[in-house]
């Protein structure tokens, strides 16, 4: 297999790990807690920018790009800082938007946040170099390791896979624990959850912030690989790709989130690369979006619970029957307001 092919495969694997990480975070927020976070990509973005700014070093005089602050921190600090930035932004936004708003207003506010974030970053050029964005961003351990281009790529595959695995562990532990149950209770019937002593607002914030940290992490890892980041890479529609991934793969199911990440951002979007270029520039991209939108609609109509739906958690104790349900899945509830 030629080196070029290997490089390509390694790159796809990197994207896969990053997308899996991102989808797991959104699944925690939306799938398990019912938060319609339509600004998810903004948290990915801030993780990316934070990583960039903390590796580019202080802005030198006459530099072709302008940005705010700037430092050259050693690995893994910039990546961790990116994750922390995602968490911090979630804390701020969560405090404003999560508390008292009805779900649809919340969704609307998040969407608006995403749109405005793009607008602000594009226009405040001193922040992150505006529309041109940041580039020539150093890779993690890029100079320290002194590997060939291909070898470094495989190293990065391992790095992102490790972080994806860590993310999976965190999300798995949360969702399988009593905390996960409390989150699902808030999602299913928040007034009943409150009547049972659950601090609904606090639980939402917890889920939102953890999801934000994961989003920031995925952003930092992505930028470390592609070494450039600009508003065109994180428009509001990108959040929609993740939601489509969850819809296809299955929400409130970590395996479903992983499957969705494989099928949508990776398989579907990468597959397009192999089609012959046709029409004017921008046409394929536009049609891709049409396809993503259509896939969402189709799945929401025919298979709303996705390929791997939320699983029923059977608890076996002596004396308790585990009633046979062939697929082990959770039945559809006509009254459920949120689980699709």
């Amino acid at each position: 297999m030629s080196a070029a092919w290997q490089f390509y495969i390694a790159t796809v694997l990197i994207y896969l790990a990053v997308d899996v990480t991102a989808c797991l975070g959104l699944n925690l927020q939306y799938g398990y807690t019912g938060i319609l976070n339509f600004a998810y990509i903004a948290f990915v973005a801030i993780g990316g920018y934070t990583y960039a700014v903390l590796t580019l070093g202080p802005q030198p005089r006459g530099s072709f790009q302008r940005y705010f602050f700037g430092a050259s921190l050693p690995f893994p600090l910039p990546i961790l800082a990116g994750a922390a930035a995602g968490g911090l932004l979630s804390a701020v936004l969560g405090a404003i938007a999560l508390r008292r708003l009805r779900s649809d207003y919340q969704a609307m506010v998040f969407l608006v946040v995403s749109l405005v974030a793009t607008s602000v970053v594009t226009n405040a050029v001193g922040l992150f170099n505006g529309a041109a964005g940041l580039s020539v961003i150093p890779k993690p351990l890029g100079s320290a390791l002194n590997l060939s281009l291909l070898d470094y790529q495989w190293f990065y595959v391992g790095l992102t896979a490790a972080f994806a695995g860590l993310t999976y562990l965190v999300v798995h532990r949360i969702t399988g624990s009593p905390l996960g149950r409390s989150l699902r209770a808030v999602r299913d019937a928040e007034h009943a959850a409150a009547a049972l002593g659950k601090n609904v607002a606090g639980l939402r914030m917890t889920s939102f912030i953890v999801g934000g940290v994961i989003a920031g992490l995925s952003g930092a890892l992505l930028v470390g690989s592609i070494t450039a980041w600009s508003p065109s890479a994180w428009l509001y529609q990108e959040t929609f790709v993740f939601f489509t991934a969850l819809i296809v793969g299955g929400t409130a199911n970590n395996a479903g989130a992983i499957l969705g990440a494989i099928l949508v951002p990776v398989v579907f979007l990468e597959a397009v690369r192999f089609l012959p270029q046709f029409g004017p520039p921008g046409l394929t991209e536009a049609l891709q979006w049409v396809a993503i939108g259509t896939i969402s609609l189709i799945f929401l109509w025919f298979w709303p619970r996705g390929v791997l739906p939320e699983r029923r958690r059977v608890i076996t104790l002596p004396g308790l029957p585990a009633t046979a349900r062939p697929d082990g899945s959770v039945a559809e509830s006509p009254a459920a307001g949120t689980a699709p």
């Binding site: 699902r184 009254a335 689980a339």
Partner: peptide, 8 residues
Amino acid sequence: SSEFPSMT
């Protein structure tokens, strides 16, 4: 009735 429908 306010049970949590998706849970057992």
